[in-house]
């Protein structure tokens, strides 16, 4: 299986000019994500997870290193090209949903297609149905529960068939039942629709739904866990073990 995302020697340094101490948010991070894979990135706060996600989203530029998404490098893209790249290749899911309050759930989902000048009619309905919220298309975000809003955000992230979906603590604001439902849907989307997902989380339960968990600490890749053929329960336990070893060392 080919790699959809390749991250090569990625570093990000903040500050360090005028005598101030430099912060190495990311320090020579390299890994790859296979097409159709569901990867979790875990690490303590301040480990560089968010910086990694921002760089992958094209919202921040690395100090060193290169990213290839579907063989294409981010480097050298100007604002307009980067925007076009984002709207065709990437999908985003945020911790606080980030739906536009003035648009209905259906319109929010249609937005990426409209930005890319594609006809939303059929595709939006299909995607909403896939996530079980087709009856809520005409509701506004404030008329929907947190779980429903987050499912609409997931629909928005996958409606345009992106190469990669980036999720930033997607279950962070949800109660445990809604979180579980959302993660099950992630798994279904990943297995049946072959959606590639990279999810940043600090919740081991959420991470255990992934095929692979990457741990970063102090800006460096520390270790990696493959689910392989283990049952969820066992994978969850080994994630917990790895986390506690990381925190000790």
């Amino acid at each position: 299986m080919n790699d959809i995302l390749q991250i090569k020697h990625l570093s990000k340094t903040y500050g360090g000019t005028g005598g101030a101490a430099a912060t190495h948010a990311l320090d020579d991070v390299s890994f790859a994500v296979r097409c159709g894979e569901f990867v979790s990135v875990m690490g303590p706060s301040g480990s560089g997870k968010t910086t990694l996600l921002n760089i992958l989203a094209g919202l921040d530029t690395p100090t060193h290193g290169e990213i290839l998404l579907d063989g294409q490098s981010y480097a050298g893209l100007d604002g307009e090209q980067l925007a076009a790249f984002r709207r065709s290749q990437l999908g985003f899911i945020f911790q606080d949903y980030n739906l536009l309050d003035t648009l209905t759930l259906g319109e929010n989902v249609a937005l990426p297609l409209l930005l890319d000048k594609r006809d939303p009619a059929l595709r939006v309905q299909q995607t909403l149905a896939l996530l079980g919220i087709e009856t809520l298309a005409d509701r506004f975000p404030y008329q929907a529960s947190g779980g429903q809003q987050q499912r609409a955000a997931v629909a928005r992230a996958i409606v345009h068939d992106p190469s990669l979906v980036l999720a930033d603590e997607p279950t962070g604001n949800l109660d445990s039942a809604s979180a579980k439902l959302l993660l099950q849907q992630f798994a279904v989307l990943n297995q049946q629709m072959r959606v590639t997902i990279l999810m940043v989380t600090h919740d081991p339960q959420a991470a255990s739904y992934a095929d692979r968990v990457i741990f970063i600490k102090d800006g460096q890749l520390s270790t990696m866990l493959e689910r392989g053929l283990q049952p969820s329960r066992a994978f969850f336990t080994s994630i917990l073990d790895t986390l506690s070893t990381l925190e000790e060392g």
Partner: peptide
């Protein structure tokens, strides 16, 4: 906030 979100979703600066 709204503009930032639109840009993140891929609206181009020109749009």
């Amino acid at each position: 906030n709204e503009f930032g979100l639109l840009l993140t979703l891929g609206m181009s600066p020109r749009q």
